[in-house]
Design a protein around this nucleic acid. Structure first.
Length: 504
DNA sequence: CGGGTCAGGACTGCTTTTAC
DNA sequence: GTAAAAGCAGTCCTGACCCG
């Protein structure tokens, strides 16, 4: 059986070829942009931390308690957990060859000789061979849903290894002797490679980074890209999720976190991919300390964004678009829940954004009065400013220890936030909240709100009416559109205002 | 070409020091 | 008091060399 080869510029008719030449005979000048699939590459497989063992197991449930994402990586006892070299091999060599070949990806890919790959990665031959064996022998148990590049709903439910390896001189499935090293993709992985959206990364940049810094770049680039696309000043990333998706150790002491992340951030700050890093303390659902990390994109990120949005990059954008259009309940990753901006800022999205930031409630279902309030804000201020106002309100409330619980509380900050928004040259900083303070924050919130409600309940009728009227006038002064609100919405907003007064 | 050995370097996590 | 940087120890990687 004759071996069929796909050249770099393969024609459509050749696309189903059994064997592809991954570039061993071609110039290996790196591409400026590499497009990688957006499903499996976002989840951790490799142990990038030296000196420690990692147990990669992620399970996420939706609001109904049903498993929406299961991801478990089981390395081979014989070859060990794929580490840094195996990671570089996947991201620098194999992903690049896949990108060069284009879609559909053939089942069998020629990746080169040990010597040449060693030259590319600067490694020893036996180490490289082991890295390939580690990648090939590591099994993944996955259950997840994703959106295909054609927009269709896809599922990945399988226990699989991504590919097998045939070394030089060994026998290929077609009976021939391998003249170089080949990887043979297994069906679940091949399906993802051919159906998942892709997203662009700067190949030159990721190549020069150390593995942990490269992984950070892969993770944060989604957020940076989104922040630039939607013209937001900062991108956000949860520390806990960074740790989960990079398989790095998670600390609960801020000094540890800062030092750990300092090293990860350093090359990106030096290269000006990131201009500024800020932390905001919070707690996760289990009450463990966590931090929202804000990143101000630097000139390099902007230049990258511009490149991706011109010539070569245009074709590679589908990935980042699809990641933001996951229908509710089908979100692949929890990481998406803190994305800087939904594709379209609807009233529902705005309310959800508020409850996520203010109360760490995921998948909140807005009630009608909240939707009405959000619609009013959107109509008055427009989507970008509306989102800013929500974030501003949450930050300002944290400053004064006001435990915002209802969307109506945002109304209190509209004029102040709007003034800040107009002076965009003056950045609104994240309000740093000490971890130890934050630990008890929400525990206190319940009782404080209850106390405020108790105070409200015992107010003399005359004083209550007076306070309500003052609050109503204040809201109307701040937000002329409030004149159009229903009585119920106005009542709720006034009530939120009074609770704030009484809890301070 | 594949594999083994080994000294030096790189990286990570943690602690301590320094600067403000 | 806090943030940034330096120092340290342990582990793993890297590159050179050698052998079959």
């Amino acid at each position: 059986m004759a071996k069929r080869i796909i050249k770099k510029q393969s024609s459509e008719s050749e696309a189903d070829a059994l064997v592809a030449n991954g570039g061993s005979s071609q110039n290996l000048a790196p591409l400026q942009i590499i497009r990688t699939e957006t499903v499996i590459s976002r989840l951790p497989i490799h142990n990038l931390v030296k000196g420690g063992t990692v147990n990669i197991q992620i399970t996420q449930r939706n609001e109904n308690g049903k498993v929406s994402l299961h991801w478990e990586v089981s390395p081979s006892n014989k070859y060990g957990h794929p580490g840094q070299l195996a990671y570089k091999l996947d991201t620098v060599i194999i992903n690049r060859i896949i990108d060069e070949i284009g879609r559909p990806v053939p089942r069998m890919l020629k990746i080169g000789t040990l010597n040449r790959l060693c030259g590319e990665l600067g490694s020893q031959k036996n180490e490289l061979k082991r890295a390939l064996q580690q990648n090939a022998s590591t099994t993944i148990s996955a259950k997840l849903a994703y959106k295909g590049k054609d927009g269709s709903e896809k599922k990945l439910e399988a226990i699989f290894s991504r590919y097998g390896v045939v070394f030089t001189g060994e026998t290929l499935p077609n009976g021939e002797k391998a003249d170089e090293i080949y990887v043979i993709f297994n069906e679940p992985y091949l399906e993802v490679l051919n159906s998942a959206p892709v997203r662009p990364l700067s190949y030159d940049y990721l190549r020069q980074l150390s593995p942990t810094c490269q992984r950070f770049y892969e993770i944060v680039s989604y957020r940076i890209y989104a922040a630039l696309k939607y013209n937001h000043p900062r991108a956000k990333l949860l520390y806990s999720e960074y740790c989960t998706y990079s398989a790095q150790q998670r600390h609960d002491n801020f000094e540890r976190v800062r030092v750990q992340m300092y090293r990860v951030h350093k090359p990106h700050l030096e290269s000006e991919y990131i201009e500024k890093v800020e932390y905001q303390a919070m707690t996760d659902e289990e009450g463990k300390p966590d931090w929202v990390i804000f990143y101000v994109p630097g000139p390099k990120a902007r230049a990258e964004f511009d490149t991706f949005n011109t010539k070569q990059g245009k074709a590679a954008q589908s990935g980042e678009i699809h990641e933001r259009t996951q229908p509710e309940g089908h979100s692949l990753f929890k990481m998406e829940e803190l994305t800087e901006a939904p594709t379209e800022m609807t009233a529902e999205a705005l309310v959800k954004h508020f409850h996520l930031l203010a109360r760490r409630v995921n998948g909140y279902r807005p009630v009608s009065r909240e939707l009405e309030q959000a619609e009013n804000i959107l109509a008055t201020y427009g989507a970008p400013q509306a989102q800013f106002l929500v974030e501003f309100a949450v930050a300002q409330a944290a400053k004064t220890n006001f435990k915002v619980r209802q969307f109506g509380a945002v109304m209190q900050y509209l004029d102040e936030g709007s003034a800040f928004y107009r002076k965009r040259s003056v950045p609104v900083e994240a309000v740093p909240v000490k971890a130890e303070k934050q630990l008890n924050f929400w525990e206190e919130a319940e009782s404080e709100t209850q106390q405020a409600e108790n105070r409200l309940a015992v107010l003399p009728a005359a004083e209550l009416a007076e306070r309500k009227e003052a609050a109503r006038q204040s809201i109307l002064a701040k937000l002329p559109a409030a004149r159009e609100w229903s009585e119920e919405v106005m009542e709720q907003t006034v009530r939120a205002s009074l609770l704030r007064e009484l809890s301070s």
